[in-house]
Design a protein around this nucleic acid. Sequence first.
DNA 1: ATTAGGG
DNA 2: CCCTAAT
Length: 463
Amino acid sequence: MDREEYLRKCSNMKCQRVQVDESYVPALQDEVMEVEHLLAEPRNNLAFQDGSLDSHTTLNGKDDLELEVLDGLLDDVEINDLEGADGFPGACEEYFLDFEFADNIEEVLGSGPFEGSLFQNSSSESHSSGLSRSSIVGGVLESTKVPTAQSECKNDSLDETVTYESHGAFSNNPSQPSKGNCRYNISLDVQHLQELDNYRHLAGSILTCKKEKGSIEKGQPSALREKRFRKPTQRYIEEFSNASSKEKVPPAGTKTKHSSDSSCNVLHIRIKSLKKSPSEKSSNENSEVMLPELQVRKARQKKEKLQYEYESFPSESEDGCSMTKKSRRKDRRKHQKMWTLPEVLKLVEGISEYGVGRWTDIKKFLFSSSSYRTPIDLRDKWRNLLRASSVQKNKKEAEQNDEFALRPLPFNVVHRVRELAKIHPYPRQRGSKKLRFSQAGSSVVADSPPVSLSKRNVRRKFT
DNA sequence: ATTAGGG
DNA sequence: CCCTAAT
């Protein structure tokens, strides 16, 4: 009975693996290309980066252009760092993943071969020996679906670049039923990229376990069914996926109930560093960049307008650099790019040309060069502009002064904005709705309540 | 996939 | 900037 089942499952496994291998090839090519690209000019890049970085740190706040260029470079590196790790001999230690938790697993698996524990990992898990092995097993199981063949440990040509050592964690795999220690030697060659990838997947799977027990506040999509009620939050996913690897983390073990141990934490950190360490400097860099801006932002949101003036001096440059788009999105939040005056001008112009609401078009035509600034950003900016302009109008009426010096927005710009605002009142001109409720009798002035009616119709196409 | 709207 | 709902 058991035997039959077991055999059947084994055969299934085989099938899966074959399939997997097939589908894996094309996926790999991508990576290969990346790696190749990186191998093509590894030192060069690094050297440059190092040098410029250092010099930059001394210069500190210098100017935006430089920052951005550097940023782009860094991003580039960040993207590839995992594959291109060969350039960092010193980082070897970081790449050493020791699965400290594995001891437990070894025990469990040791006593009962996978027919017991691997396939029915729900049985004795209630004991949760420090670490719920079920989660790990689940993870591994999952990863078999993915381009994975953990049995790769017979890997022969050993470049001693990196060695993964695992005690049993990897061994609970059909083709490698024997537990015990298994040493994986991985060179970061293209040839061996596959292995690396495997580990990344594994890492991912295991990582999920950490998260599940570790940070309850945020969830993991895969674990939704279990005890996740709140959605993971885009941001978290993004961040996490960045930290661990480019790929999405394969769905975690579905059986995972609850695990509480610290070894997973360790693993998490390690893996994180695996991703980050090569570009360590970049993080420094980033923090440097983002701090001031955030501070400013937090200090005074109204000051946002003021920023135009600051930025508009050195500005005009950020349009030109297209740099790395790949990972742009991820850290967009980090250093929020303040809108520069030229940008605003462009935006206004674009709006007047393509109309309000055609954010995608505007982005495509006028902001195609700036990788940040999503259409949504444009819209938001426009919204803000409208608000700003209207506020200014009020201000003018009321006091017409510079009191808080928050009028960095050139008049002509304001003018244009207002003009456009007449045609397309974007965010319901403050008032109408709210006024109805609050009946604000104070200073709030409904700029043009009637205009908002024609809102949707106006959207003119071309001028 | 894009947009509107709210936070 | 981020997220969600609606389209």
